[in-house]
Design a protein around this nucleic acid. Structure first.
Length: 587
RNA sequence: CGGGGCGUAGCUCAGCUUGGUAGAGCGCUCGGUUUGGGACCGAGAGGUCGCAGGUUCGAAUCCUGUCGCCCCGACCA
């Protein structure tokens, strides 16, 4: 039977909801697909559920094609597995934690690596059982600091998460590739533009990781790409270190007075006026070495000071720093930190002073000192002399100071060279719609998942994890497919295939509409039939446009003559069609 | 966590500056008319003005506190 609007649980709103800003959120609420329950938490109404199911169908079909089997875990889980993997602590405030009546800690899962691993451990113990790929479509919970943009960034969201289990690295590569291929098919079928970028494996652990980003200015990920085909999340971008230089002909370092120069700009100005370069070229920010003091807060509560040295024309990219020091949290050093290290003179910090090394694990302060990869041996810098109002000029890396290592902390800029030599990169914004990871043995090791290999040896299983944000995809599709009147669904995900409208008061209209709806349904299509009596045509047309089913059939004034109208929601074109031909006309 | 905005009927909002019996449009109910672009007439139902305290003869309105929501930023495997 067609779904009849007269008794469907659907209520459209005439006006935009006041708490919805972004288009997808606004339209999905207004057209009766979802309702907000709490910040970042939404209820799904029947028509919304249909769209969600359509997307899930595409995902399921491609998971099946990739050889993965569907399972379903609870969202509510005990603490223990997450304690064993370390994520109970590492996940921090983003984890929804709760206790049962006995006081046992539980959580609402942000992802399910641990329990999938334990399930396989329970049931499998031979290499003959592998490879294995299993997946679920489940709601995930993350207590985001600031949920926003409706479904695009919620605290509860539906995700397809798949996990692969292999006993060899080559097997993992194959399983990973199968999921990656499936993702390409899924996004292609859904008509979603995507870019595959190298990603940081982050706190998930593991090695190889790629993100599927949908390029959009409202995306919250920044990625870089080169004309030569390199693509990476900025968090995963690696800087090419220039070759080390010979310093034998460089003059010695010299401490000079530079009063009132606490910032790079004031320093460059003062250097040019008071201490011009011998070769006549002006000093620039790139000649200075900026030293930023940060505090690392480890999950176990330990606090460490670290100083990062980078060219003065580069800003620190906090996201990249976070990645570099994960899972530690980064904070700016506070007054207490400076008070504890009188050797650091705020505004004039450098790795060296007339008295010797100031930064580095073997220095007077013992503070770990990491530098940007561009700070190679033989490069000379203007940097703080650890005396108020004084800088050291011509301080040469490798000769005058030693760093404890390099760190990817500097911002990535337009024109920076791609690490694979494929040319300069440009920056763009994208929204993460999928993520594939080679987890390796982190979880299997922590939870003891081993199998006997062909030689009878116990080996730790290697895993992959693969996520797709189902509800986020739904929101992006809505974001991409609409006009000022409402939604316009792509056929593959539309809640219904055809929307039949009966408009008029004569019985023949409703009789005709009824038979047309049934006839169309008879061809295997889902039909939404607006059979509401006493609702004016304007309202029905408006609702149809808002709801966004791409194909609309209007049964009205031509009904008595056996004529109905086909209305293409996307183009707005209308066409008179004899009743007998309408089902065929729908293609 | 920092900055900004907003809490009044189911929805969207006015009223607050300058204190005096709670408003509009839409939606909803009943009766009637109307039916190809959000119709009309008549009669209705519906609100602890976010919450608490204070000032006052009297508070939606002024003061203090508090809670919540939205937006920007920070944060975001």
């Amino acid at each position: 039977m067609p779904t009849r609007l007269s008794n469907y649980f659907l209520r459209t709103l005439r006006e935009d909801p006041s708490d919805a800003e972004v288009t997808s959120h606004r339209l999905l609420v207004r057209a009766g697909y979802i309702r907000r329950q709490a910040p970042g938490v939404f209820a799904w109404l029947p028509i919304g559920l249909r769209v969600k199911a359509k997307i899930e169908t595409v995902v399921r079909e491609e998971m099946t094609n990739a050889g993965a089997h569907e399972v379903h875990f609870p969202a509510l889980l005990p603490r223990e597995p997450y304690e064993l993997s370390g994520r109970w602590d590492e996940y921090g405030d983003a984890l929804f934690r709760l206790q049962d009546r006995k006081g046992s800690d539980m959580l609402l899962a942000p992802t399910h690596e641990e329990v999938f691993t334990l399930l396989v451990k329970d049931l499998y113990n031979s290499y003959k059982d592998l490879p294995l790929s299993i997946y679920q479509i489940q709601d995930k919970y993350r207590d985001e600091a600031r949920p926003r943009a409706g479904l695009l960034r919620g605290r509860e969201f539906t995700m397809k998460d798949a996990y692969s289990f292999d006993y060899t690295d080559a097997g993992l590569d194959e399983s990973y590739q199968a999921q990656r291929d499936a993702y390409e098919r899924i996004f292609t079928r859904l008509g979603l533009e995507y870019v595959i970028v190298k990603a940081d494996a982050g706190a998930m652990g593991g090695s190889k990781s790629e993100e599927f980003l949908h390029p959009t200015p409202v995306g919250e990920d920044t990625f870089v790409r080169s004309a030569g085909g390199y693509a990476a999340n900025v968090e995963a971008f690696t800087t090419i270190a220039p070759p080390a230089r010979d310093w034998t002909n460089l003059t010695g370092a010299e401490v000079l007075d530079t009063p009132d120069t606490p910032t790079i700009q004031t320093l460059v100005d003062r250097a040019n006026s008071a201490h011009p370069r011998p070769d006549g070229r002006a000093w620039t920010a790139a000649d200075t070495l900026k030293n930023v003091v940060l505090t690392l807060m480890q999950p176990d509560g330990t606090r460490e000071l670290v100083v990062i040295g980078l060219p003065g024309d580069r800003e620190v990219d906090l996201k990249r720093v976070e990645v570099a020091f994960a899972p530690a949290e980064i904070e700016a050093a506070n007054e207490t930190d400076f008070a504890r290290h009188p050797g650091l003179v705020k505004g004039y910090i450098g790795p060296w002073s007339a008295a010797g090394a100031v930064l580095g694990e073997k220095s007077a302060t013992g503070i770990r000192y990491l530098v940007d990869p561009r700070v190679v041996d033989g490069t000379g810098w203007i940097t703080g002399a650890n005396e108020h109002g004084r800088h050291v000029f011509g301080l040469v890396a490798g000769r005058d100071f030693q760093a404890d290592g390099t760190v990817e902390a500097a911002e990535v800029r337009f024109g920076d060279p791609a690490p694979d030599g494929s040319g300069p990169v440009e920056l763009a914004r994208g929204m993460e719609i999928g993520h594939v990871f080679q987890l390796g043995r982190k979880y299997a090791e922590a939870l003891g998942l081993k199998v006997l290999d062909p030689n009878g040896k116990l080996v730790t299983v290697t895993m992959g994890s693969y996520g797709i944000g189902v509800t986020r995809i739904l929101a992006i599709i809505a974001e991409l497919n609409n006009d000022e009147k409402g939604l316009i669904w792509p056929p593959e995900v539309s809640p219904f295939d055809v929307h039949v409208i009966a408009t008029g008061r004569e019985q023949v209209v409703f009789d005709t509409a009824e038979s047309v709806a049934l006839a169309i349904e008879g061809t295997g299509r889902d039909v939404l039939y607006d059979d509401r009596p006493k609702v004016s045509p304007g309202v029905k047309f408006g609702d149809a446009e808002l709801i966004g089913v791409p194909k609309i059939v209007i049964v009205g004034r031509g009904a008595a003559d056996g004529i109905v109208e086909f209305w293409d929601r996307r183009t707005g074109e209308r066409e008179q069609v004899p009743v007998a031909e309408i089902a065929a006309r729908l293609g």
